[in-house]
């Protein structure tokens, strides 16, 4: 900001406008990363424990589940939709996956435990199925995604309760729990999974034609349609992606906690959407990136972690997170006004 003022003093007006514009672009494009760096800097000064390897790994591991969810939800939000069902999908995929990987004779399905790979596949397919249903209803019947996924939030939670009569699925096999509890080269596996999901999503959104179509559909569906993009199938596909990532997050949660829990993932959709919004993705679609989402996820995780390290009351965490969401949307709205 100081730099902007200086340039205003020394340069002719035309260039000044350009310069300020550039600064505003930089601030908007990198504002979220700046905010993240500032937050980390403040916390590392305030707590000697913040910048330790163990703590950094903790924060990354704690953000892995929300990060994976948020990346999936980013795809939906980029098309201008919303997916409220992901928290319930976490529970359903987590518990059905768990029922294939439990050694408990009563909680599992017949013949369990099956190999971890099968349990994971089943969980992912569960997520895919829920996503396909939501996506089809949204894309084909043009029902607002808010309503469809709100309905799925409730129905899928109900299915979860029905599946085990509300009981958890304990005693998961070590091979299934590997992805949640083990480390590779000293780094927890959930972090690798998050990075893997991020890398693929980043590649799809920035390097493929399909990725460009997603932005096009979100930015201006009519124009996308006239230029020959199959808007309907793009729309359907993003809910399928979100379903699969939610399924993966659910499996990971089961692996981490050691049990498939019916009450898992309650209100996780809100944290996921918060991460997407804080990361600068526009709720009206067409603008944003999974990089932003990743940073948004990290901001939420760092804040929760930092406030725990500092011994701050947990009620403040909710309060601050709320303010950040509103602030992020404010930036987005001003950007949209400018575009008009």
């Amino acid at each position: 900001m100081v730099n902007v003022d200086q340039s205003e003093d020394s340069a002719p007006t035309g260039i000044v406008r350009q310069n300020t514009a550039i600064w505003r672009v930089i601030l908007k494009k990198y504002g979220i990363i700046t905010a993240f760096i500032v937050l980390c800097a403040v916390l590392s000064v305030m707590s000697p424990y913040f910048l330790t390897t163990q703590n950094i790994l903790n924060v990354l591991r704690q953000s892995s589940i929300n990060g994976i969810l948020a990346i999936g939800v980013s795809f939906v939000i980029l098309t201008g939709g919303i997916d409220l069902s992901v928290g319930s999908v976490v529970a359903l995929a987590g518990i059905i996956g768990a029922s294939f990987a439990t050694t408990s004779p009563v909680a599992g399905i017949a013949g369990a435990p099956y190999p971890a790979v099968l349990a994971i596949l089943v969980g992912l397919v569960v997520g895919l199925c829920v996503g396909t249903v939501s996506g089809t209803v949204v894309a084909r019947f043009k029902v607002p995604s808010f309503v469809v996924t709100l309905g799925m939030l409730s129905s899928v939670r109900g299915l979860t309760m029905l599946y085990t009569d509300g009981k958890p699925v304990p005693s998961l096999t070590p091979s299934f729990r590997w992805m949640g509890t083990s480390t590779v080269l000293g780094i927890p596996v959930p972090i690798f999974i998050l990075l893997f999901v991020f890398a693929i999503s980043w590649w799809v959104l920035t390097k493929t034609r399909y990725g460009r179509y997603i932005y096009a559909v979100g930015g201006n569906p009519r124009a996308a349609s006239t230029s020959g993009i199959n808007v309907r199938s793009i729309r359907r596909s993003v809910y399928m992606i979100s379903g699969v990532t939610a399924g993966l997050a659910g499996l990971l949660l089961s692996a981490r906690t050691g049990s498939g829990l019916t009450q898992a993932g309650i209100s996780y959709e809100l944290d996921a959407i918060a991460a997407v919004v804080i990361g600068g993705t526009s709720l009206s679609g067409g603008v944003g990136s999974v990089t932003g989402t990743l940073v948004g996820t990290l901001i939420i995780a760092v804040m929760n972690n930092g406030l725990d390290l500092l011994g701050v009351d947990s009620n403040y965490q909710q309060f601050i997170k709320g303010l950040m969401i509103v602030f992020a949307v404010l930036i987005d709205t001003s950007r949209q006004k400018e575009a008009e």
Partner: peptide
Amino acid sequence: QALMENWLTRYP
């Protein structure tokens, strides 16, 4: 789980 991880860091 997250809370306890953070406490274990804070109070090694």
